[in-house]
C-alpha cells in the first residue's frame, strides 16, 4: 500500500461547498500539511479521508485497515485511564497482548506519559491528552495517519514532543496528513496544500512555495503603525498586510508595485525583506496566482 490518494474530492453541506474538487496524493514517509484558516475545509477533508463522511463526488484510495485518525475534538474515554484507553483501542485494532504491551510501552515512553498510566484521561492536561490521543492512533502502526489540528490547546513542550513522535513514525514510512491553521507548523511539513473555501490555492514544499512567491515582501517602518494599517488595508494592490513590531509587513502586487510603493512611502521607510510562509499564504488568499507554477 502506498500512502493515500484522493481525486476530485467534493462535499457539500446544504449550500456550502466545504470541499471542492480536491486532489491529494501523499507518499509513504511523507508529512503533508493541509493549511488554511478556520472554515477552509480542512476538517471536512480529513473526515472524508477517514471515512466518517461520505463524499458527494470523488475517489479515495487508502487502506482503511491501516488508518490512524486523531480528531480535533476529544475522542478518548475520559473515565478510562491512559493504559485502559490504549488497551481498548489496541484490542479493536486486533493487536495481540504482546504487541499491545510492547507498543504501548514504547509510545508511553516517547510521550513521557508512562508514569501517569493509571490516570484517567479526563484528568489529563491538554497536552498530555493530545499525546495520549496520538499514541492511541499510532498503536497499530497505521500506514496512513490523519491528524486534525493536533497541537490545538497544547503547551510548547508537549507540542515539541508531539512533533518528535510524529517524525519518528514518518521516518519509518508512515504517510501523514496534518491539518493546521498555524504557519509555523505548516513550515515543518514536507509538503503543504493551502486550502481556502474548500479549494486548494497552491501546493508544494514550504520552502519552494516561499521561493516561488512572485510578489515582493516589504517592511514599513513608521511612527503611525495603526493609522497606516487602517489606510492601507483596503488598497487593492496590497495583497498581504500584517503588523510586525513597530511596523507593518506587506506583500505588494508585483505588476504595479512602483505606484504602490510610492503611496506607502508616505507613511515611512520601506525595505525589501525575505518572505516567509505566512506571507505566501496571505498573498495567495488575494491572488491565487501569487506562486509561479513550478
Amino acid at each position: 500500500m502506498s500512502g493515500l490518494r484522493a481525486q476530485g474530492l467534493t462535499r457539500r453541506f446544504g449550500d456550502l461547498l466545504a470541499v471542492d474538487g480536491l486532489d491529494l496524493r501523499v507518499a509513504p514517509g511523507e508529512l503533508y500539511g493541509l493549511v488554511g484558516p478556520d472554515g477552509a475545509g480542512k476538517t471536512t477533508t480529513v473526515r472524508l479521508l477517514a471515512g466518517l463522511l461520505r463524499p458527494d463526488a470523488g475517489i479515495i484510495a487508502l487502506d482503511r485497515g491501516a488508518l490512524g485518525y486523531m480528531p480535533q475534538r476529544y475522542s478518548l474515554y475520559g473515565d478510562l485511564t491512559i493504559a485502559e484507553n490504549l488497551t481498548f483501542f489496541g484490542r479493536l485494532f486486533g493487536l495481540s497482548r504482546a504487541e499491545r504491551t510492547e507498543r504501548a510501552q514504547r509510545l508511553l515512553r516517547i510521550t513521557r506519559l508512562a508514569r501517569f498510566h493509571d490516570r484517567r484521561a479526563d484528568a489529563l492536561s491538554g497536552g498530555m491528552y493530545k499525546k495520549l490521543a496520538l499514541a492511541c492512533a499510532l498503536l497499530h502502526r497505521p500506514a496512513v495517519l490523519l491528524l486534525d489540528e493536533p497541537s490545538n490547546g497544547v503547551d510548547p513542550v508537549s507540542r515539541r514532543e508531539l512533533w518528535d513522535l510524529l517524525y519518528e513514525f514518518v521516518d519509518e514510512g508512515m504517510a501523514v496528513v496534518l491539518c493546521t491553521p498555524y504557519m509555523d507548523e505548516a513550515a515543518r511539513c514536507h509538503r503543504v496544500g493551502l486550502l481556502h473555501h474548500g479549494r486548494r490555492l497552491a501546493e508544494g514544499a514550504p520552502a519552494a512555495l516561499v521561493a516561488q512567491l512572485k510578489h515582493p515582501t516589504l517592511r514599513l517602518q513608521t511612527a503611525q503603525r495603526d493609522a497606516a494599517e487602517r489606510a492601507l488595508a483596503t488598497d487593492p494592490a496590497i495583497l498581504a498586510l500584517s503588523p510586525e513590531g513597530e511596523g507593518l509587513r506587506l506583500v505588494l502586487r508585483a505588476e504595479d508595485q512602483a505606484a504602490t510603493r510610492a503611496r506607502i512611502e508616505a507613511w515611512g521607510t520601506l525595505e525589501v525583506i525575505r518572505p516567509d510562509f505566512e506571507d505566501v499564504f496571505l498573498a495567495l488568499l488575494n491572488d491565487p496566482r501569487s506562486v509561479e507554477a513550478s
Binding site: A50, R64, P71, Y77, F89, F93
Partner: peptide, 13 residues
Amino acid sequence: EDGTLEQILVTPI
C-alpha cells in the same frame, strides 16, 4: 457526544 464513536469507527470493527 464525546466523539469516541468516531474514534471507534476508524478502527476495523
